[in-house]
């Protein structure tokens, strides 16, 4: 792969995105084996550096690295020198100096991963930076859609909820539009960022318009503090106006599928029956997340040369 870092989907070519998605297929086969381990990344070290709480993304990256035989080490900001005031750049240099080949960074501020690339030589994988991007989440969403629909091109994808604060929405918007999907976003006007139309998104303040005839529905997590911040009047009203329930989902195509990046607030942005229903791919997303992250780690560190190793 021609890129050194994975910072976001904005600057990735269609070819690179396709290459990652193509590589995730064989990776998924490895996970389904009885003996889930290949020697591909033996001798490589992957450090996960997380400045925000995370369950699935962190575990997903660590398992992805382990299934490929990389050594992994994790740093949680709350129990590190960060609380002693160490800067992000110094932390990056320290981790790099210990010999890490890849730093997987989760950070509450936009641009943190890009900042690291300017001060270290190691591969940086953005595992979510503020409201900016969460590329592996979008890639796993796209992989999940592809598994069922065989194509992204021409699909209508509805993304519902707090678009303003969502790095998942931004990465999906870049990735899905690059692969030819028609992306509709819907949320309360106080939770819609300005200018998305200029990126090719169709923007609605009513979810019904986005859902009408959709092939894919992505419900986003609503951070509960948005109400305290005065962005919505109440969770109750939010659920009533924007929550994904069976009645709203009926507006989508009969074969529409439902995704959620997790963790879910059941009963807020999505009802339990939809989350657990037959059209929900939420559990599949988690499995695919490991496969896609294996593909990313592999392609960044080994590249195209050793493709046969993974089989």
């Amino acid at each position: 792969m021609s890129i050194k870092h994975l910072l976001g989907l904005q600057h990735l070519s269609v070819n690179t995105i396709t290459q990652i998605l193509d590589t995730a297929g064989p990776m998924k086969q490895i996970i389904s084996r009885n003996l889930k381990k290949v020697p591909t990344l033996r001798g490589k070290a992957v450090a996960t550096v997380f400045y925000e709480p995370s369950t699935r993304t962190r575990m997903s990256f660590e398992l992805a690295a382990k299934y490929l035989s990389a050594d992994t080490v994790g740093l949680a900001a709350a129990s590190s020198s960060v609380v002693k005031g160490e800067t992000l750049i110094d932390t990056a240099r320290t981790v790099a100096a210990m010999g890490a080949d890849v730093i997987v960074l989760r950070h509450p501020m936009a641009g943190a991963a890009e900042l690291m690339t300017r001060y270290t030589d190691v591969h940086i994988v953005n595992a979510g930076d503020g409201m900016h991007e969460h590329p592996t989440q979008a890639l796993l969403d796209m992989f999940t859609i592809l598994e069922l629909k065989n194509t992204i091109s021409g699909l209508k994808v509805a993304i519902l909820g707090d678009i303003l604060h969502s790095r998942v929405a931004r990465s999906n918007l870049w990735g899905l539009t690059k692969l030819g999907a028609e992306v509709h976003v819907a949320g309360p006007p106080t939770l819609l960022p300005v200018g998305l139309q200029q990126l090719g998104a169709h923007v609605h303040d009513c979810p019904e318009a986005a859902l009408e005839g959709a092939d894919v529905v992505i419900a986003l997590r609503l951070q509960l503090e948005r109400q305290r911040q005065g962005l919505i009047p109440s969770l109750r009203e939010y659920t009533r106006l924007y929550g994904l329930n069976a009645e709203r989902l009926a507006l989508a195509r009969d074969d529409a599928v439902v995704l959620h990046p997790g963790p879910m607030n059941r009963g807020v942005e999505i009802t339990a029956d939809v989350a657990d229903g037959s059209r929900s791919l939420i559990a599949e997303q988690v499995t695919n997340g490991v496969a896609v992250r294996m593909a990313c780690l592999y392609l960044l560190t080994v590249g195209d040369g050793g493709r046969e190793d993974i089989n």
Binding site: Q10, A110, G111, P193, G195, Q198, L199
Partner: peptide
């Protein structure tokens, strides 16, 4: 500044 660039960068406008 609030606008497309801020939206893309994920910075508060």
């Amino acid at each position: 500044n609030e606008g497309l660039t801020a939206s893309v960068l994920g910075l508060k406008g």
